[in-house]
Nucleic acid binder design. Structure first.
Lengths: 350, 350
DNA sequence: CTGAAAGCGCTTACAG
DNA sequence: CTGAAAGCGCTTACAG
């Protein structure tokens, strides 16, 4: 292991000042073409690479973005990490990844702030917005990803957020289900404090209201596989009063529902019950699930995140929310209910 | 957004020198208990947090580990990220995440080195080991995760690696298949240049050889869902010469195989063909797959990675490989083949 | 136990 | 276009 080579070493070899070396590695700095050439040659010879830490100290820009997540079991998040990371790399930024359970969020915050990140992306539906507010106080741009922070009027600041048009997405599902003749539609919520879950449910209820219907039943799965299973079991406990459709707040829970309905309850999807998810994770397309769902456009969400981040890093104080359209992906888990069948089923339990 | 508060500001308020402030935040430094107290109070009042960037510059330790991955579709890797990240956080380290296609690996390397990471973990089966060697030249500890680097005798350095006992794992599967009466066992390789795939195949062949058998057929899926599907289609093209068992180099491909066998080939698993994977990703336990597989112990692999990393950061030059035991997880995708059935099938094609 | 001072490796006005 | 110099915010011998 060789000793670290610094700009001084290169300067000596290239017979220029250390400042010149710095300029030769700063895009747009004024250096004569041939000195730049000489410096680069010397640098290559010595294996010199500018020290990004030292640069950060003087420029007060680390070009590091903190990405906070709480769990990766839901495949939606690995997809987000991958795309966000690659996009930011292309922008010349890098990602410091923090995995945080909701409890140790405060320690995580401390760490992030010490590392002088230029911005923070919070891509987890279960993270406290108190955390976000602390960051704003520290003057670091924060954008919530797939989550809306609680409004905070004090001080005039708010947190930027990028989300899908969750309510519209929920409505699309509601309309699909209604138009296919479903009348006993159940909702499986994510976390009760998650804006995504709320919005999607509200959209579903919009569509039901437009058809003079209301929610047939409601469970809570906390965006968790095992909890979703339990909730589904409860929702379908009474055979005489079974939902004819189940809309789950995300695909992860929808897949849990599918598994539970088939394996433990012996029900056929979509014949006995239709199932719809939200996200369009890779597994939703697997033949075993063939899940009808609402696709969140991760690419657009990532673009919006970058825009928001750079806007604020560039000094624009205003936080704002960006909302990205999502589209219904119809696959095989929604069936048609005939009117006869509907009437029959309804009279059976009335 | 308030101006950044520095150690000087705290010093002024607490009426001590800036050095004292630094000591108050350095565990083990000699400060009088009451001055430390006064300093901490002042710091809290001002919202001071030590600047980790400045500290890194002087200590020449960034406490950042670079984690390089190429794709996250295979659920094994999100699990690794999550556990590695959390473990390193507890060790007081943080993770700079790099997503790299195999092509832009060089740029990625540049970036990592500029950020003065204390070490690098390469947790991707498809990453070039030339990259790793460059890092070693730069004096940065590298540990390969779930992959073995090409040996490099020159200079006496080699790359540390933590892997599962892949060959033993492959052998376990071979023995299971043989003892259940399978005689026409096919192998679906990952990437041809991946040590994991090689080792697992070698283990399988060990078991086959012990029973005087050899591979019935062989495909290559490049650890990719779509490619695995194509390979399976080719492997099962001839109904008269079909494998009675398929061992896939990882679960991701095994699930692709399961889907293809059932949906496109109309075969029943395990009645018509047994399927085994490797990794034990979360989905392997889902009822739809109920996949028999070999579990890689991520916890132990992560622990070994930390040990290796800290060993080398601490100045021990020696690179070494650590190998972690893996265990067979028997689920529902392996059936029994009776001798009659075997004989019948074999004679049918001979 | 404490402070003054040097220095980590850069960037960036400021002169020339 | 180029160099000398100051300074980013810390840590850490070195004296006292």
């Amino acid at each position: 292991m060789k000793a670290k080579v610094t700009a001084h070493d290169v300067a000596r070899l290239a017979e220029v000042s250390q400042s010149a070396v710095s300029r030769a590695f700063t895009p747009g700095a004024s250096v004569a073409p041939d000195t730049r050439e000489r410096i680069h040659t010397a640098a290559r010879q010595l294996g010199y690479r500018p020290n990004a830490i030292a640069r950060s100290l003087i420029t007060r820009r680390s070009r590091i973005i903190g990405l906070v997540m709480s769990y990766l079991e839901n495949q939606f998040y690995p997809v987000v990490i991958e795309q966000l990371c690659q996009a930011l790399q292309q922008d010349g930024y890098h990602v410091l990844l923090f995995i945080s359970d909701t409890e140790d969020a405060d320690n995580v915050l401390m760490d992030i702030l010490q590392y002088q990140v230029d911005g923070i992306v919070m891509a987890s539906t279960t993270l406290s917005s108190a955390l976000a507010n602390d960051c704003i106080d520290a003057g670091i741009p924060v954008v919530m990803f797939n989550r809306v922070a609680q409004r905070r009027t004090m001080g005039g600041y708010a947190t930027s957020a990028v989300t899908s048009q969750n309510r519209a997405g929920g409505r699309l599902v509601g309309e699909l289900l209604v138009s296919n003749g479903h009348r006993r539609i159940a909702w499986l919520a994510g976390a009760e404090n998650a804006s995504t879950s709320h919005e999607r449910e509200a959209g579903l209820c919009d569509a039901l209201a437009a058809a003079d219907l209301q929610l047939h039943a409601r469970g809570v799965g906390h965006y968790d596989f095992a909890e979703a299973r339990r909730a589904v079991l409860a929702l379908f406990r009474d055979p005489a009063n079974r939902p004819d459709a189940l809309f789950c707040a995300n695909d992860h829970m929808a897949i849990a529902a599918l598994e539970t309905l088939r394996t433990e309850l012996g029900l056929h999807v979509p014949r006995d019950v239709s199932v719809v998810g939200f996200d369009n994770v890779p597994q939703a397309a697997w033949p075993s699930f063939d899940l009808t769902t609402v696709q969140q456009n991760v690419g657009q969400m990532v673009d919006a995140t970058r825009t928001l981040l750079f806007e604020q890093i560039g000094g624009q104080v205003l936080a704002r929310g960006v909302t990205v359209p999502c589209v219904l992906v119809e696959r095989g888990t929604v069936g048609a209910r005939s009117v006869e069948y509907q009437t029959h089923k309804t009279s059976e339990t009335t």
